[in-house]
């Protein structure tokens, strides 16, 4: 596994060489976007991480966990991931904040940490996509499409944790 990334990068640079593309300028142009992107994300992330702290300190976190625990247990999702699973369809920066919090609390190589990574890494913010895609069209009600999108979001959480159990336990 550890050779995947170096191999991939070598392939990309070899391809640029073969296609007579200037890999250096291409890389610089892409990497240039990194700082503005992270800079724009900072206020949202700061706000979301404060919200996570607040929810933990005030007990809202425990309450939410208590309400959703039976459902999560049924789906085989560790209960610590409750907030991440619930928030995922609504907010990208919110779930990123949640992922970081979980990784810092439970450790990057823990079972909960890995489940959190897979839950975060396998689905998009469904509600955000729906507004961006359909905002300029005549479609006002998404109906079944939204139901399928949300179902897939929950399914990816359950399935992700299942695969983690198969791979890491």
């Amino acid at each position: 596994m550890k050779y995947i990334l170096p191999l991939l990068l070598l392939c990309v640079f070899a391809l640029a060489f073969a296609k007579k593309q200037n890999a250096y300028t291409s890389f610089i142009d892409g990497a240039k976007q990194a700082l503005p992107l992270a800079k724009d994300l900072l206020p949202y992330l700061a706000c979301m991480l404060v919200a996570v702290e607040l929810a933990k300190a005030s007990g809202v976190y425990n309450l939410l966990q208590f309400v959703f625990e039976p459902l999560l247990t049924l789906l085989g999702i560790p209960q610590q991931l409750c907030q991440l699973v619930v928030l995922k369809p609504f907010s990208g920066s919110g779930s990123l904040a949640m992922l970081t919090d979980l990784l810092l609390t439970h450790g990057t190589d823990s079972f909960v940490g890995r489940c959190a990574c897979v839950v975060y890494g396998t689905s998009e913010t469904v509600f955000y996509i729906s507004t961006v895609y359909f905002g300029g069209t005549s479609i006002k009600k998404l109906g079944w499409a939204m139901a399928i999108g949300l179902f897939c979001s929950v399914l990816s959480s359950a399935l992700g944790c299942l695969f983690c159990r198969l791979f890491f336990v």
């Binding site: 640079f13 291409s26 890389f27 990194a34 700082l35 992330l45 700061a46």
Partner: peptide, 23 residues
């Protein structure tokens, strides 16, 4: 944590946005 995360993300983005742009 947000600031530290953004700095980490900058390094992740710089690498991948660079490589992806080459591709």
């Amino acid at each position: 944590t947000a600031v530290e995360l953004c700095i980490s993300l900058t390094s992740v983005y710089a690498l991948w946005l660079g490589v992806i742009n080459v591709a």
